[in-house]
Design a protein around this nucleic acid. Structure first.
Lengths: 113, 113
DNA sequence: CATATATATAATTATATAATAATATAACAA
DNA sequence: TTGTTATATTATTATATAATTATATATATG
């Protein structure tokens, strides 16, 4: 066994990607793709409950994917990093391509049923 | 409520990102970053059990992140798409930066305790 | 053919986590 | 102060999922 990678780093990285790995959090990130919004705005735009949005936002904060800035009693959340945008974009593209891939697969592969 | 995004697409995207969102799968992807390997090789390199690796590989296949090519009784797995490499890379970078960000945060922000 | 090897699958169990309901905190307004 | 709004937190429950054990399948070899 050649465990090449630090288990703690793996845990951290997995946690980071978990930020993207839930439909509710993705819908929040999709909203934030177009700019900063308050929690209430996110609640309205996603249709998720307020505590649910707050919980997911705290998860996204912990993952380092978004930051919240308090302004009076509102908190404006935004995506921290352009790479987050890129990853969301790549996610879409890979999905589109792998859907196409599945289709092509039925034409070109030899050993599937 | 302005549900801007198709829930089914969200599910699919979340599923795609789930591929990256587990330490065991990440360790498999890390192995595959350096090229195609058989299941047995991945088992040896990660220290995970064979059925566990097979299960995770089937998950990664479903997510469209890897493909397996059968060669005799071995199956060589490889990453499907360069964007997968990039996303792994970005994951690392965001992690590094957010760690740095947390540090900088204590110096530059005004409204945190 | 019988046996060994490589991989996959199924069933089970333990754990993690998403959603909900209820409540708390904090900022503002009357 | 009291009430209201915005957000966060906590506890609970239901569900999803990772790991394990055992077994199945499929490919090779003698």
């Amino acid at each position: 066994m050649i465990t090449s990678v630090d288990p703690q780093l793996l845990q951290l990285k997995a946690k980071l990607f978990r930020g993207f790995a839930d439909p509710s959090r993705l819908s929040i990130l999709e909203v934030l793709r177009s700019g900063p919004y308050t929690v209430t705005e996110i609640v309205d735009m996603t249709g998720l409950s307020q505590p649910n949005v707050s919980n997911h936002l705290s998860c996204l904060r912990d993952c380092g994917l978004v930051i919240g800035e308090q302004n009076g009693r509102q908190v404006y959340y935004q995506i921290t990093d352009d790479r987050v945008h890129t990853m969301l974009q790549y996610g879409e593209e890979i999905l589109a391509d792998s859907a196409r891939g599945v289709y092509e697969c039925t034409r070109y592969t030899t050993n599937n049923k």
